[in-house]
């Protein structure tokens, strides 16, 4: 058996294979559900119901998808330029810390101004956090995979210190959490009475903007050129180092918006368990989306639905919600295989 490259894969091939990947994921998940003692149809059905079955469930899924859209976009932007940003988790917390500092009374401004300033400041913090590894990469050739990954741990410990020290809520009964944001610093709900905040709308706008940058601007062209062939890009007069640094700023800023929207929108205060690994799951989201900004929205909704649905399924049927993690991993592997098979044909000799 060997792989033979396909020069120009047909549209049918490019659409069928991802669909097959999703089918394979569902099949494998059913098998696992059976092993765990559940009826696969009931388990999958309950996941669907849990994710989309009621107004409450649907809003919960959208809320869960919001930070994943931001981190997924951050990863997609960086990966397209072959800047391997594994540090979206740290950049998310950088944004969250800025919000917790500015939003708890340090700045007294009307809501629109305060929210804008907080969002911009959060983006700057996240951008700065990725700028350092990007500079180390362009100046000294330090591998950004290592630096960004390690930054996650360092920054989480730093947040832990802040929550035990300077940012600790004096009214928090000793819990390591920040003070609650002032009402002006909270992202309002999109519709009164429904538990969905403006962070979700912001995420959709961010995806549209990234898509426009990608397709319509010189920066997008430069980022893709640098990612595909940095040598040729440099030769053609594209300022490669500058493009990598701009990419880093954009990517770090997007990841930080996840932290902004979680604290200002959903939680109202900063805690150490703000993110259950949104920065890492963002990598899965971006890969599932084939690094396409609009695909990121779809992929984030898919991933969020599986998590939210699995939680509810677990409560109703008793099959462990770890099934969600396995489904996600399976989906990713199946998608990677589907991408491979779009580009190559298997030949048996």
């Amino acid at each position: 058996m060997r792989l033979e490259p396909i020069a120009n894969p047909s549209l049918a091939r490019r659409l069928t294979l991802p669909a097959l990947a999703i089918a394979a994921t569902i099949l494998i998940a059913s098998l696992l559900a059976m092993i765990a003692g559940g009826n696969p149809m009931a388990v999958l059905g309950q996941i669907l119901v849990g994710a989309f079955g009621s107004k409450f469930a649907l809003l919960e899924t959208l809320n869960r998808a919001t930070p994943l859209i931001f981190t997924g976009l951050a990863i997609a932007v960086a990966f397209r330029a072959k800047l391997w940003n594994i540090g979206a988790e740290a950049q998310l917390y950088a944004g969250a810390v800025v919000v917790a500092v500015l939003g708890t009374g340090a700045l007294q401004l009307p809501a629109p101004a305060l929210l804008t300033i907080m969002a911009l400041a959060a983006m700057m913090a996240g951008a700065f956090l990725l700028l350092v590894p990007a500079l180390l990469k362009t100046r000294l050739g330090v591998d950004e995979v290592v630096t960004t990954l390690l930054f996650n741990f360092i920054f989480l410990l730093f947040v832990s210190y802040l929550l035990e020290g300077p940012l600790k809520d004096p009214m928090g009964m000793g819990w390591p959490k920040s003070a609650r944001l002032t009402p002006e610093a909270r992202l309002p709900r999109i519709v009164d009475g429904l538990r969905l905040h403006w962070g979700f709308a912001l995420a959709l706008i961010a995806a549209a903007i990234v898509w426009i940058i990608d397709a319509k601007t010189t920066l997008g062209f430069e980022m893709r050129a640098v990612g595909q062939n940095a040598e040729a890009a440099r030769f053609a007069g594209i300022p490669v180092t500058k493009v990598i640094l701009k990419t880093a700023l954009l990517s770090g800023g997007l990841a930080a918006l996840a932290g902004f929207s979680e604290v200002a929108g959903l939680k109202g205060s900063l805690t150490l368990d703000l993110s259950p690994g949104f920065g890492y799951t963002g990598i899965v989201v971006a890969m599932l989306a084939l690094l396409h900004p609009l695909g990121v929205v779809v992929a984030a909704l898919f991933v969020a639905a599986i998590f939210v649905g699995a939680d509810s399924m677990s409560r109703a049927i008793g099959v462990p919600s770890y099934l969600a993690d396995i489904m996600l991993a399976t989906a990713l592997l199946c998608m990677v295989l589907a991408i491979l098979l779009t580009k190559f044909r298997v030949r048996r000799d």
Partner: peptide, 28 residues
């Protein structure tokens, strides 16, 4: 160093001149 293999012909032809001839204020 001459071309970007996975770019299409259009993108490859403007590789050196996109900034001066095929864009305005950053818009392609």
């Amino acid at each position: 160093t001459g071309t970007i293999a996975d770019f299409d012909l259009t993108e490859n032809t403007i590789l050196e001149t996109y900034a001066t001839q095929f864009s305005k204020r950053g818009w392609m």
